[in-house]
Amino acid sequence: MPKPTSSQTIGPFFAYCLTSSEYGYTLVADNSLKSPSGKKIKISGKVYDGEKKPVPDAMLEIWQADPEGTFLAPQSEKHQSFMGFARAGTGEDGSFLFNTVKPGSLKPIRGLPQAPHINLHVFARGLIDHLTTRIYFSDEAHTYKDPLISLISDKNRKQTLIAEFQEEQAGCAVYTFNINLQGADETVFLRW
């Protein structure tokens, strides 16, 4: 069987193609996901390297279920109004922002309830391969019972996957989620 093609770094020069809003146009996706239903949320934070310096040219991609907990098939009519995929580049200070809606709970897996979460890829100059993780929510009842969160024994390490609720802002719930690529506070990344 063929071997998968190797990954190579995204490098520093992707923005005009992948995260082009700073060039004044949107191509495939930007950092906002609109939905006709569901709770509006904002997730913002910063990406830091192993020396706690902000990473000014990382790219983040999110993929999530709709408010009913469904990953929408492209054929479905609802897919026209909610695609589930968004992209954000980080700014000079390492910051990023996603405007989206709270995903619904997914079906239980092996009898265990899954808490609402967002799938996340992190790409950055210096990373040969991108990193994969999830964003959970501090104000969801099932977050600490989720099968993936339960796999992580250390309490502080669990927290690296949980976006912290900050406040309500004009009908929108605001969360903070920072990403540490390396170091003592390294975000839990997933392998398979």
Binding site: Q64, A65, L106, T132, L151, F189, L190, W192
Partner: peptide, 11 residues
């Protein structure tokens, strides 16, 4: 890194 292969679902 945490091995999540048993619980990959949304991915």
């Amino acid at each position: 890194m945490v091995d999540n292969s048993k619980f990959f679902n949304s991915e």
